[in-house]
Each structure stands twice: as C-alpha cells, then as structure tokens.
Amino acid sequence: MSLAELSASFVRPAEPSAAAAIGAIGEELELFDDWMERYQQIIDWGRRLPDYPAEWADAAHRIEGCQSKVWMAATAAEGALYFAGASDAAIVSGLVALMLRVYSGREPAEILATDPVFLKDLGLIEALSTNRGNGIAAMARAIQAAARAAAGGNG
C-alpha cells in the first residue's frame, strides 16, 4: 500500500523517529507541575486521535484489558507499520495516542528496538508485565508482535 492510500484513521508520525517522539512526549509532560495537569494533557492527546472506524471496534480488534476497552488496527505502507487505536476511557485514549505517536509509521526494526518501558520511565503506568488495568501493556505487546510478524515476513 502507498501512503496516499492509507486511511486517515492511521496515525502519521509527527517526529522523525520513535526515540524523538518519546523525547518530545517527556518534554511536553515536564511542562506541568502536577499530575492532574499532566493527565489533562494526556486526555487532550486522546481527544485529538484520528477518528477510529466503528466497524473496527469489534472483538477482532480488541486488546484484552480488564477495566477499559482498547481497540487497535494495523497495516503496512511503504515499508512501515501504521496503527490506529481507540479506547472507551479518556486517559487510556490519551495513552493510546501517545503509543501511536511513538510506534505508528515506523519500520518493524525500529518498533522492535523501541522498548515500551518508556511508559514506565515517564511514570505513565506502574508495571508493563502485570497491568491488566488499562490494556496499554497489552497494546504494547500487540504492536511488538505485529512488528515481529512483519519483520519475519520480510526476512
């Protein structure tokens, strides 16, 4: 698929690399003194996610999470993987937006080289392995799995 054909629901990268996106997110969150304000920012990011098609909000696109629902779609275009995502919870939508800003539009090798531990480093989630709560850890695993599949397919 060419980029011109890519649905507007998939996130186009704003920064040149995943590392640059993580750096930019960290800097933007640093601007706020308290966590309430940071969450206001995160919620705003969620509200600015591209529209997620209702027909993709189904079981096939559902990421297992305990407390809120997260959906994700993936596609390849011009050697990179593009992701679309949504959640029924506002803060989780913001975390989805931030994940897609980091990972969407990157090549599989770059996705695999970008450890989702940045979520923990930024203080956004407590634990990557065990957090059933917000589904973001599961989303990170799904993104990595998609990249592994794509990398395997190319190699």
Partner: peptide
C-alpha cells in the same frame, strides 16, 4: 462523561 477507569486513575494520583 468519564470512564470509571479515568476516575480511579485520577483519584490514585491524589
């Protein structure tokens, strides 16, 4: 307008 998850996350920060 809020998901219970949002409410709990924000309360947790307090």
């Amino acid at each position: 307008g809020a998901h219970a998850h949002d409410v709990a996350t924000l309360l947790d920060r307090a």
